Computed example of a mutant assay.
Amino acid sequence: MATQAFEDIADTFDFLDDWEERYRHVIELGKAMPPMDPALQVPATKVEGCASQVWIMPMIENGRFDFQGDSDAMIVRGLIAVLHALYSGVPVAEVGKIDAQAELARLGLDEHLSSQRSNGVRAMVQRIRQLSDAAA
Rank of each mutant, 00 (worst) to 15 (best):
T3F: 06
T3G: 04
F6G: 00
A10L: 09
D14G: 09
F15V: 09
F15C: 06
D17E: 14
D17H: 07
D18M: 05
Y23L: 04
Y23W: 08
Y23E: 05
H25L: 07
E28F: 12
E28H: 09
E28K: 15
L29P: 09
A32N: 11
M33V: 10
M33S: 14
P34L: 15
P34I: 05
M36D: 05
D37I: 06
D37Q: 11
A39I: 13
P43D: 15
T45V: 10
V47F: 01
E48I: 13
E48G: 10
G49Y: 13
G49R: 13
A51Q: 12
S52Q: 08
S52T: 09
Q53S: 15
P58N: 04
M59N: 08
E61D: 06
N62D: 08
N62M: 04
N62V: 01
N62E: 15
F65K: 00
F65Y: 07
F67P: 02
G69H: 03
D70E: 12
S71P: 01
A73L: 11
M74Q: 11
V76E: 01
L79P: 05
A81K: 00
V82N: 05
L83G: 14
H84K: 14
A85P: 05
L86G: 02
L86H: 03
Y87S: 00
V92S: 01
A93L: 10
A93N: 04
A93W: 04
A93E: 09
E94P: 02
E94S: 04
G96H: 13
A100Y: 06
Q101H: 13
A102F: 13
A102N: 08
A102D: 06
E103L: 13
E103H: 15
L104T: 00
A105V: 12
L107P: 03
L107T: 00
G108Y: 12
L109G: 07
E111L: 12
E111Q: 12
L113R: 09
S114A: 07
S115Y: 04
S115G: 14
S115W: 03
R117E: 01
S118C: 11
N119A: 15
N119M: 13
V121R: 01
V121S: 11
Q126M: 15
R127L: 01
L131V: 06
S132I: 04
A134G: 10
A134Y: 14
